[in-house]
Structures are given as structure tokens and as C-alpha cells.
Design a protein around this nucleic acid. Structure first.
Ligand SMILES: [Zn+2]
Ligand SMILES: [Zn+2]
Ligand SMILES: [Zn+2]
Ligand SMILES: [Zn+2]
Lengths: 145, 145
DNA sequence: ATAGGATCTCTAGTCGCTATAGCTTCAAGG
DNA sequence: CCTTGAAGCTATAGCGACTAGAGATCCTAT
């Protein structure tokens, strides 16, 4: 059985984050030592590694909650899991396209600025006037870069 | 002079967001009508369009605050503005590289799954075992996808 | 005059943590 | 055995950039 600190070092997940995952029900309530400190076994360690890996791949905690529930039920069809991963892939691709457009626009701005006075700064100018941009940006209202 | 609703329609920024920008000091306190409703002139409309455009290009509100201060001072050197934009470009490039790696990993997972039982699901398997991944993910602790 | 939409203020919620404060417990050294 | 310092505990608040709701007020049109 591992203390929370050792579990943290073993998985690369910070101690408060582990407690947070327990609080929101992503990890089960930990067993406790006689002095009320959390103790973890192999099962929870694997579960936490799964969560960490899914986070590294960009999955939202709610998706991870579903994926964990699926992983606990080995006889079911994996269609739901594949659908979640497919949705994640689509989201990543959408963000990629948006970021590529941002990169191009930022590069253009910087390339056209001769770094003189603010009054002649292409960066400030473009920010104030989208007509100087090469293309449209996000049409919706999700401006999360 | 525009009401907040008309300013919202004119700029594509939602009404509560405009009030929020005022609250955090990104927009000056609006003039008020006799009935205490906000009124906006051309200057504020331009300022809001600038903010909106910078947000579309992924700048953080604190960066935008600096950029607005710079824009108000046309004789200064634009080095600071260019530095902010350069930093933003670097951040975008870093996110791009990370997202490309995520995309590759997600595609690999999905390509290897034959959509049968959970017990055989490649998606679940890879999430539980990073050794099956083609490369490392974010080494630090910024897992924001 | 009245209906309805628009606006007002204020508070709380989102996501995924992170940080702080003030306490208790544990492990190692003297 | 006793002390010290690290590690653990709970509870609360904060981050960024908004969004949503309640309940009151105002403005416009019929
Ligand atoms: Zn410049
Ligand atoms: Zn633009
Ligand atoms: Zn599958
Ligand atoms: Zn991996």
C-alpha cells in the first residue's frame, strides 16, 4: 500500500490533484491508515495512471469518467469508447486547423512590422483592423486558443 | 451613441462579456443614459473591436491590456508590442506541435481498434499503457489540450 | 396604459486544477 | 523516549474568460 505522496511520485500526478480526483468521484474513496491517511493499492494506481494518460491525450475528465466505466466492463462493445476517442480526434483536428490559421496570421503580422513607432506598427494595425487579415478566424464564439 | 445590445451586435461580443470587460478595466466605465443604461461612442466601439480581434488571435486578456496601452501611445517604440506577438506565436507553435502529436496518437489508437469487445479495445488498452504509444506527451504538467 | 423586450446589479457556476491556512501524523536521528 | 521536520489532513478560495440565473428596472410600441 502506497501513501498519497508515493502514489504521486509513481504516477506523476500531484498530491492535491489526486485528492481532487477522489473528491469528484473519479477515484474511489481511499482506504485510510489508523491515523486517517490515505492508502492506495495496485488497482487505484493503475486507475490513476489511466486517468493521467488520458489527460495527456487531451480527454476531458467527464470523458475519462465514461472511459473508466467502460474499461470496468470488459464484455461490452467498445463502440462507445471508440466514439469518445473519435470525438476527441475531431476536436483536436478542429483546434489544429484553427491554430494553424492563427500561426499564419501572427507570422504575417510580425513579418510586416519594421519595429519602429507604435503609429506604424503592423501588429497594432492588424489587431485594430481585421480587413488586413488573410482569412477569417473562429466564426463561433469559442475563442479558446 | 449605441446601447450595449447594439454594440454587442455591431462587434460580435456578447452583452455580458462587454460588462465583464468593463468590470476588469479593459473597457472604460461607460457613460450612462438618464435611466442608468450604458451608452457607447465610436472610440469604445473601436476599442472593443480591437479586443475581440486580439482574442480571436488567441491573445490573453492581460496581453490585450498591454497592447491597448501601447496602442494609446503612438510615438513609442513598438518593440513591446512585437515582443508580445512573438511570445504568442511561440505559444501557438508549441501548442501546434503538441496537438499534432496528440492527433497522431489518437489516429493510431483508432486505426488499431477493430471495434469489438472492451476487453480487446485498443483505445482502452493504450490509455491504460503508455508503452503502446509512439512517443512521449507533455513532459511538464500543463495538460491543457 | 400596458405588454414585452432590453437592461440593470449581483451572485454563482464552468473546467481542471493550484494555493493557502491551520491542524495532525509519521519517520528518522539523538 | 523525545524531538524535529516532512508529509498528510480538511476546508476554503483563486485562476482565466467568461456564462447563466434571479429579480428589479427601463424603454418602446401599440
Ligand atoms: Zn511593431
Ligand atoms: Zn483577423
Ligand atoms: Zn475500441
Ligand atoms: Zn502515451
Amino acid at each position: 500500500m502506497l501513501s498519497i505522496g508515493k502514489l504521486s511520485r509513481a504516477t506523476g500526478v500531484k498530491v492535491p490533484t489526486i485528492r481532487y480526483y477522489e473528491q469528484i468521484g473519479l477515484l474511489p474513496e481511499a482506504e485510510r491508515s489508523s491515523g486517517n491517511q490515505r492508502l492506495y493499492g495496485r488497482r487505484t494506481q493503475e486507475r490513476l495512471a489511466f486517468i493521467r494518460h488520458a489527460r495527456e491525450l487531451g480527454f476531458a475528465l467527464e470523458d475519462i469518467r465514461e472511459l473508466l466505466a467502460l474499461a470496468d466492463d470488459p464484455e461490452r462493445s467498445c463502440a462507445a469508447a471508440d466514439r469518445i476517442a473519435g470525438r476527441q480526434l475531431a476536436a483536436v483536428n478542429a483546434r489544429l486547423r484553427r491554430l494553424e490559421a492563427l500561426r499564419d496570421e501572427l507570422e504575417r503580422m510580425l513579418a510586416h512590422c519594421s519595429s519602429g513607432r507604435i503609429a506604424d506598427c503592423r501588429v497594432i494595425e492588424v489587431l485594430g483592423n481585421h480587413a488586413l487579415c488573410g482569412h477569417e478566424h473562429a466564426t463561433g464564439d469559442d475563442l479558446s486558443a
